[in-house]
């Protein structure tokens, strides 16, 4: 845990930068493989995500007519950067977060949302019909899942009385796992993550049979590659967050591995289990069921905290 790496190495290679990107690709592979196996297919070989990215990077990036050129090039970079920044506050690979300050949870969640925002902007930037529809859907979806996802992550935070991810992580390990204490929050968090990543069945913003690739229809080459890597890394970060909050924290890399992989197994199963929801169904589901579920959960947590300091909290760090 207390390896002392120089900050630069930490940023560029481990646990930031390259290793993070690589882990994104690995998790994408595992995800695709799992979904394939759930559908009784062989699925891709291990290097497929990498091959995809290399192929995209090697391709010409076509900048379509009618876009704001700077924005078109800039948005994928912003998206990826924000995701990589978010990784710094999260106990990636079970290590201590590279940086932390009180309240970094909120910052992290918003950095993660920046990705969707960039995708939405990228879609709105073009004149393509599919992109525009995709962008509206992406933003609509963002507004619906963002609140429940944040609330779901706040559950443990409030229960532990700290908004610092690192502290929540270590405290969660010493408590009853929050998946048992706050099951609704866990469900909301997993589904919220899937909504964030636009995984099926919440893939209305990029429903290929309707609007081709949604907001990213006009992207090719480098821009698309960056968005894809960004989304892969977001997947890893999201899984890490949920695992550290709800699955008893991540104390070491081994912990990280098995907990996130189990989570991935669950999300892959959910991906293969349902038909795509229409955007109105997604929104309806979130606001009618998701938010209320999480709000009730939160209420319970707050009430529990008020009336019962009997529960042996070991909020060691805070």
């Amino acid at each position: 845990m207390n390896l002392s790496l120089s900050p630069l190495v930490e940023l560029l290679f481990f646990p930031g930068g390259l290793v993070l990107l690589a882990s994104g690709l690995v998790y994408e592979f595992v995800d695709r493989k799992l979904v394939a196996r759930f559908q009784n297919r062989i699925g891709p070989r291990w290097f497929q995500p990498l091959a995809d990215v290399i192929k995209l990077l090697a391709k010409e990036e076509v900048i379509p007519a009618g876009v704001v050129k700077g924005l078109f090039i800039f948005l994928p970079i912003v998206a990826l950067t924000s995701i990589l920044t978010a990784a710094l506050y999260v106990p990636m690979f079970g290590l201590k977060p590279a940086f932390s300050f009180p309240g970094d949870l909120v910052v992290t969640v918003y950095l993660l949302s920046l990705m969707t925002l960039c995708i939405g902007l990228a879609g709105a930037n073009t004149e393509d019909r599919f992109s525009l529809v995709g962008a509206t859907r992406a933003l609509t979806q963002m507004f619906s899942y963002e609140a429940p996802f944040l609330l779901a992550l706040l559950g443990p935070a409030i229960a532990l009385g700290t908004w610092n991810i690192g502290q929540i992580n270590s405290a969660a390990g010493n408590n009853l796992w929050f998946i048992i204490a706050q099951p609704f929050g866990f469900i909301a968090a997993v589904i919220g993550l899937m909504g964030k990543l636009e995984l099926p069945p919440f893939d209305a913003p990029e429903a290929e049979t309707e609007i081709v690739a949604g907001a990213l229809t006009e992207y090719s080459g480098r821009g698309l590659a960056l968005f894809r890597i960004g989304r892969d890394v977001e997947l890893v970060i999201g899984l890490t967050l949920i695992a550290s909050f709800y699955l008893g924290g991540l104390a070491n890399p081994l912990d990280f591995l098995w907990k996130t992989l189990i989570l991935l197994l669950v999300t892959a199963a959910l991906q293969s289990l349902f038909a795509r929801l229409r955007i109105d169904q997604t929104v309806g589901l979130w606001w009618r069921i998701g938010s209320i579920m999480v709000l009730l959960q939160l209420l319970a947590v707050v009430v529990g905290r008020l009336i019962a300091p009997l529960i042996p909290f070991l909020s060691s760090g805070g």
Partner: peptide
């Protein structure tokens, strides 16, 4: 029901894939 293909996906997961490496 919700997720009425749960049995299928669990089955598939443990079965040999139906596709082949031609």
């Amino acid at each position: 029901t919700i997720g009425s293909m749960l049995g299928d996906i669990v089955n598939s997961f443990f079965k040999r894939p139906a596709t082949g490496r031609y």
